Amino acid sequence: MALKDLSLSLQFGDLDDAALHRAALPRHSVTRWIRHALDLDAEITVRIVGAQEGQALNNSYRQKDYATNVLTFDYTQEPMIMADLVLCAPVVAKEAQENGKSLKDHYAHLLVHGTLHAQGWDHETSQEDAEEMEARETEILAGLGIENPY
């Protein structure tokens, strides 16, 4: 199956250890990871943020007053995907370290996860939906040479 087209904007906000996160997120890798998770062509902005911006966004849009690893803002799903994926660098780094994963592989997982959310996948609706989404993520990541994140 041919990969879908992707128009990508990759942005880095004000964050500590910017060089570390930029090194883990080369544009060609980010493009590859997202394209493998797409069922339709897409325009996606990926923004890597610090804890303050991540917390403010999570509080504003989800009423949860803490920074989370990835937020997905999906605007349209047809005829193409239009979405923003916001990843909080310090949360991603902490999770990667705690779970013994490379920073690059954890970013790949979260970008695939966020891309699936942008297409309507949801793991919070039921246990069955969560298991289906995890299986899809694992399948995509395996195709990218990345181990099962769960």
Rank of each mutant, 00 (worst) to 15 (best):
S60K: 09
T125M: 05
E43K: 15
Q52F: 05
H28R: 13
E137D: 06
Q119N: 06
G114V: 02
L38V: 14
T138P: 03
A37S: 14
T72C: 13
V30A: 07
C88S: 13
T125S: 10
E131K: 12
M82K: 15
A142P: 00
L10T: 12
H106N: 11
G100W: 01
Y66T: 13
A96C: 01
N59V: 03
D17Y: 09
V92H: 03
H117T: 07
V92L: 12
N58A: 06
H21F: 09
N59G: 02
L40H: 15
H109T: 14
G145T: 04
D74H: 04
L3Q: 10
V92T: 14
L87H: 00
L25G: 09
A108C: 05
A56K: 13
L141E: 07
K64I: 10
L85Y: 01
F12M: 03
R32D: 13
K104M: 07
Y66C: 06
A56N: 10
E147Q: 11
V92K: 04
E132M: 10
L71E: 01
Y66G: 01
T31N: 13
C88Y: 08
D129R: 13
L10R: 10
G120I: 14
G120N: 12
E139Q: 14
G13Q: 03
K64D: 11
G145K: 02
F12I: 10
A142V: 01
C88N: 07
T76K: 08
T45F: 01
D65P: 04
E134M: 07
E131T: 09
P79H: 00
F73H: 01
A118I: 14
A118T: 14
A83T: 02
E132C: 07
A51W: 14
L141Y: 08
Y61G: 06
P90N: 09
